[in-house]
Amino acid sequence: MTLVTVKNLTKKYGSKIVVNNISFDFGYQKCIALIGPNGAGKTTTLRTLAGLLKPTEGTIQFESSTTNQDIRKWIGYLPQYPAFHSWMTGREFLIYSGKLAKLTKEEATKRAAELLEVVNIAKESQDERISRYSGGMKQRLGIAQAIIHKPKLLILDEPVASLDPIGRREVLGLLEKLKQEITILFSTHILNDAEEVSDELLLLHKGQIIESGSLQELRNKYQTTVMALQVEDEIHDYQTIVANLNHVRNTKIERGTLYITSDNVKKVREAILSLADQERWPITSFSIDQASLEDMFMKVVNN
């Protein structure tokens, strides 16, 4: 069943088109990563979905909502740089957020206490003013305020971009936990993060979705298996031999390693190992690697 359907969404600022006629949909309990370089239109897309920006054209349908319905009750949102009432304590801010989302005082208080534990805000910091929180704590508090009313969709804009490695790990761990219960749509330009927690990917480039699907689907579609060969001798002598083998598409040398791409890894691997055995090549290393998400992204963009 579909949770969100975006149809022909366009957002313009004056004559500048930031999001250009994009359409996509996704179902329940998924973690979807919106991937793209800086300036691709990720933040604008997320803010439009969250109702903070108005689409220039196109529609966003939430379940079977009509355009007149206030969909904000189903959405939790955390901007890239969340700003809080820093004079409040973490607990006060969560209770305030819960009450704004129409929870009763008792419900909001109970849920705030639960979430402070879930997002791992230390007991002694829970009643401290937010102005004293670190970046990671603020980000986790931001996620807590976004899910306090148990929304169906959690929208996070670059949730880990501004964090140090420890903070980044904590937030990614939290997302991993949350995606069991809630649909998460998050943007990132750090492809490793997307690879780590997302089930589906939307690749955004210059305001347009250039590819979408599950990580596995994209891997299958754009799979580029790269073989890496290192020898004790001069590597350039071997490049010519390997390049002439059947099914070898491309070869290149980088820092003493010969990288080979092929449309039939199995046959090329067998051919190289057979040659190496017959000719007694002084091989020091031979490995086969899957292309990273980054390689795939570059390939899609170049296509």
């Binding site: 904000r72 009750k73 901007p79 700003a83 957020s97 704004l100 989302a101 129409k102 931001g142 305020q145």
Partner: peptide, 13 residues
């Protein structure tokens, strides 16, 4: 300006 209103008005306020 600070962005606090984003967190407030994204709720059904």
């Amino acid at each position: 300006k600070s962005g606090v209103s984003e967190l407030v008005l994204v709720k059904p306020v």
